[in-house]
Design a binder for these strands. Structure first.
Ligand code: ZN
Ligand code: ZN
Ligand code: ZN
Ligand code: ZN
Lengths: 169, 169
DNA sequence: TTTATTATGTGATAACATAACAAAATCCTA
DNA sequence: TAGGATTTTGTTATGTTATCACATAATAAA
């Protein structure tokens, strides 16, 4: 399983998020806290529209899309989660220290997603940017392909990770 | 202007596309040919829904979204165009030889987009993939930020490139 | 020619995301 | 602590992106 053993180095928790927000003067409201709780429970990427009912259920009330997107937006701003562009999905960040530092490996077959540190790549891209006079904000690096499990296994194994709706191959 | 002077090394044309398709046994139908013509005329990235009426007009008939997406899908398969994930847009590929080899620099301010060769980055990512046993298919590398022009100019300069609808800062 | 395959037309719908404005909560300062 | 400014959340509606499903047409293969 591509995800196994690769839990975040500095694991994000509600407590950690609370401390970080306090340090930054960011308001970790009940909605935002609950949103992070929901994401912590998802074992992998989740689409905004799968996240929405999960958040609503946990809060015990109906929610409309903007509320979900705002909560996700806050968590993105704080660097607690990352957006996977090629899946329209959101997942816990594995790197609280350096935002946009990750490289995503995304299995087209089983949907497994793993984020690894972008050492070296960051520097290389910074060099290219400098040559162009380009000031880099957000970096997106996503690699689609077939994960080790799917390469070495005859049949697709299910349940390897939460898979975004409709994206399972 | 970030784009200036950076026309594709091996410039794509209808003739080149025709030859490539013939070599591959791919059917370069009138619709697909016209789709490529339309994209050649766009000076930069275009959304599917901006592309759709342009294609329809050139064909002189109404088209529905699936037709546009199918044509774009074909051009993507052949490596004639690239999809810019963070803009939901399509643009001519600058690298006919090596698919998914590019790195996109995307200006958040003026919308300029430039694709450069991914030398070094490709190898670095391949190394990471190998370490994970991951077989890489498509690579996405997109850097968002501020282009040289926008950094060194007081006011935003317009008309630097075709900008995807609603994405101009 | 017959049959299979591939490509396109068409209407509907799914999936993803934000605009706009109102109401509530929080913060700030006098 | 009151009052006003700011931020957050609620709510309705709508905008944007992408695909399904099935019919028809064009092409390729037998
Ligand atoms: Zn990340
Ligand atoms: Zn897999
Ligand atoms: Zn490209
Ligand atoms: Zn710019």
């Amino acid at each position: 399983m591509l995800n196994s053993g690769l839990t975040p180095a500095k694991s994000l928790s509600i407590e950690v998020a609370e401390r970080i927000c306090a340090e930054r003067g960011a308001r970790f409201t009940p909605l935002r806290r609950t949103a992070l709780e929901v994401l912590l429970e998802f074992n992998g990427p989740v689409s905004a529209y799968d996240f929405l009912p999960a958040l609503a259920q946990r809060l015990g009330r109906r929610l409309a899309p903007p509320t979900a997107y705002r909560a996700l937006g806050f968590l993105l701003e704080q660097g607690f989660i990352c957006r996977i562009e090629t899946r329209n999905a959101f997942t816990l960040a594995t790197h609280l220290e350096d935002r946009n530092a990750g490289v995503f490996f995304l299995c087209d077959h089983c949907g497994a997603t793993v984020e690894v540190d972008a050492d070296g790549i960051t520097e290389l891209l910074a060099g290219r940017a400098a040559a162009l006079g380009f000031e880099v904000g957000r970096r997106i690096v996503e690699l689609q392909g077939i994960c080790a499990d799917c390469r070495y296994t005859t049949a697709a194994v299910e349940g390897q990770s939460q898979v975004v709706r409709g994206r399972r191959a």
